[in-house]
């Protein structure tokens, strides 16, 4: 953990060497999801609601997912851009160091400009929370925080899976976009608006449903049943990282036997 912080500080120092470009890119990152949000807004302006969800309810879903995505893109960028690490042979360097590979790959890159994206989702969240009649209590606050954390773990897990794929081929890497960018776009709406098979896939295989749908129902008071169960549901999303870690280890093993 300490080493992770050290990696972060050295890369932040490096980033600060290019201050202007950092601020401009952060600003750009603020506006990229802005157009997506505008699209969402205009759709609701025309149709009013979707499957019983109001604009502000979907807005909360949007904010949580984009926040999680921004954080994981910042922290787990090393996995997200792993193909270049393999292609340049830099991964060999990580293997001749006496630390575990996951920590080193995480530490190889941070994308601090995602602060812009994060700022945008925070702004959206504040805006929708003002308009949503939620009666806040401790459990709900914890749930909201856990939702974001769980999202971070899921996205990081997907980045890791995509990175593992690089050990076999870096051509098909575009397919990973389905689950990162695609997952993000998909999960910015409550999953119930999709077809059953999609909802099931994104609940039981990639547990976005545990991040945004089920706890969202609870926050909006659309559920019955004990509160703390809903509070803990996001934690299920966190466990998604475990199989990803195993698959990563398997990938590293494969790499070390083929060297490709």
């Amino acid at each position: 953990m300490i080493l992770f912080g050290k990696y972060m500080s050295i890369l932040f120092k490096a980033q600060m060497q290019y201050r202007t470009s950092f601020f401009l890119l952060s600003l750009g990152q603020f506006f990229v999801p802005f157009s997506v949000f505008a699209g969402l807004y205009f759709l609701f302006a025309r149709f009013g609601q979707v499957e019983g969800w109001s604009f502000y309810e979907v807005g909360l879903c949007f904010a949580v997912i984009h926040m999680a995505f921004a954080i994981s893109e910042c922290l787990a960028r090393g996995f997200d851009s792993f193909s270049s690490l393999v292609a340049s042979g830099e991964f060999d360097r990580l293997l001749v160091r006496p630390r575990n590979t996951i920590l080193q790959v995480l530490g190889s890159k941070f994308e601090f400009t995602r602060i812009g994206r994060l700022a945008q989702s925070v702004a959206v969240m504040i805006w929708v929370l003002i308009h949503l009649p939620i009666e806040w209590d401790a459990i709900k606050v914890v749930t909201l925080i856990l939702m974001v954390i769980s999202g971070v773990f899921i996205f990081t897990g997907i980045f890791m899976l995509a990175a593992t794929l690089c050990f076999w081929t870096i051509q098909a890497i575009e397919v990973a976009n389905i689950f990162t960018d695609g997952g993000r776009e998909m999960a910015q709406y409550p999953l119930s608006i999709y077809k059953k098979w999609v909802t099931r896939f994104f609940t039981f295989v990639i547990p976005f449903g545990c991040t945004n749908y089920l706890p969202l129902l609870f926050l909006l008071g659309k559920t019955t049943g004990p509160d703390f169960i809903y509070m803990l549901i996001p934690l299920v999303g966190v466990f998604f990282i475990l199989p990803c870690l195993l698959i990563w280890q398997f990938g590293v093993k494969h790499y070390r036997s083929t060297g490709s």
């Binding site: 149709f47 009013g48 609601q49 979707v50 499957e51 776009e185 709406y189 999709y194």
Partner: peptide, 13 residues
């Protein structure tokens, strides 16, 4: 994905 989203919006308009 896009079609499903639009479909959902269209279904109750």
């Amino acid at each position: 994905m896009y079609i499903m989203i639009f479909e959902a919006f269209y279904s109750h308009t």
